Simulated assay, not measured.
Amino acid sequence: MTTTEMAPADAVAPDTTDEPALLEWLADMRREHPVWRDRYGMYHVFRQADVQTVLRDPARFSSETSRLAAASAKVSRGMLTQIDPPEHRRLRQVVSTAFTPKRVADLEPRIREITRRLLDAVPDDGGFDLVDALAFPLPVTVIAEMLGLPASDHPLFRTWADRLFSMQVDDPSDPALGERVAAAMADIVAYLTARVQERRTAPTEDLISALVAAGLDDEEAANFSLLLLLAGHITTTVLLGNAVRTFAEHPGVWEGLRADPATIPAAIEEVLRLRSPFTMAGRVTTEPVEIAGTTIPADRFVLVWMLSANHDERAFDDPEAFVLDRGIGGGAQTAFGHGVHFCLGAPLARLEARVALEELTARYHALSPTSGSMEVLRPYPRGVLGVRRLPVKGVRSY
């Protein structure tokens, strides 16, 4: 009997509002059911080696999930995360020059300027909401400037992002899903389509103009811009909140980072491992394939759990512990994906997080959440591990 047949098909994965329960469930699945077929016929993959096998094999595990959900095909056009090679390679190259190591490094002075301006506006008593004050406006300002979008529209972006990332998607093959997604995206797609059309008549030096110049039609360019805007801020927003929460849970970490800022990049990698911003990614099999002793038929949804991979005891000693000198990086770090779909903006997210944490640790002797209430923190319900609010209290150093 395969592990899939033994697995409880009627089980339900805890959502991200109950992080301890989710991590315990993932550990059980790694141990007992490394490949699991759920009630909707989707296959879930949990162990790091298997997750990486799926993510680096786009020929057998396609990102074009619209092949099983035709209703979502329209919203998939231009979405880099839902396109396979060679088209994926062509589209990625359109904007890849904006994310080269040098181009990203050159953004550091501007990122630091934005960070300092935002923190200068924080009340002197040290009490503020980290997401409102810094974790959201910092990355959204950076990516909006790269896209050529005005600062006055930032509140709209947050409203639209919350709407999309709060959607509950249980069965991706549901014929009504495409309509639900399209409805949730309608406002932001209309907004970005208008910006694309403006660039056709008056191009500027920004990423939307680059998409237009590359020959993308309005729909493709708007969807690609949507991906850059959402992914370009939500990862850093969630990462910064996760970092402050994680440091507060481990006495001495904040003080250590303050004393030696050179260790901040290592701390960021460990936070990414412990609290991966995106918990899973979807693929579709193009042929029957065997994973961990289970044969997954062709044309089936596969959900690969990056969060589970990053907690796999087969890959990491004491995976639930925060270990600053763990040395994780490269192919061992699955938080940003793996293979051809490795996150294009990963260097930018790491840079934004490093600069933000350097400035925070320099300004505050300590910074801790003031409420552990999930109602206050408003965690994302599924797919994203992080909070939308984070009241904190800090002891200012200057």
Rank of each mutant, 00 (worst) to 15 (best):
E5T: 13
A7N: 00
A11M: 11
A11P: 03
A11K: 06
T16L: 02
T17G: 09
D18T: 06
A21N: 05
W25N: 01
D28Q: 12
M42Y: 07
H44P: 10
A49K: 14
A49F: 06
A49Q: 14
T53A: 12
L55E: 00
L55Q: 00
D57L: 01
D57G: 00
S62Q: 04
E64T: 02
L68N: 01
A69N: 12
A70V: 11
A71G: 15
A73T: 12
S76M: 11
G78I: 05
L91K: 11
Q93T: 13
V95R: 06
V95L: 11
K102C: 06
R103A: 15
R103D: 10
L107E: 11
L107D: 06
E108Y: 08
P123F: 04
L130Y: 07
A133V: 03
A135Y: 04
L149I: 11
L149T: 09
H154W: 14
P155V: 10
A161E: 12
A161P: 04
D162I: 04
R163C: 04
Q168S: 15
A184E: 08
M185D: 08
V189E: 11
A190M: 09
Y191R: 14
L207P: 03
A213L: 10
D217W: 03
A221Q: 01
F224K: 03
L226W: 05
L228H: 06
I234P: 01
V238R: 07
L239C: 02
N242I: 06
G252E: 12
A266I: 05
E269L: 00
E269Q: 10
E269D: 14
V271H: 10
M280S: 15
E290L: 00
I296E: 00
P297M: 00
L303R: 12
W305H: 15
M306S: 14
D317E: 15
D318M: 05
F322H: 04
D325A: 03
G331S: 13
G339K: 02
R354V: 07
E359K: 02
H365I: 07
G372P: 08
S373L: 09
S373A: 13
S373I: 09
E375I: 10
P381H: 01
G386E: 02
V392P: 05
K393Q: 15
S397R: 15
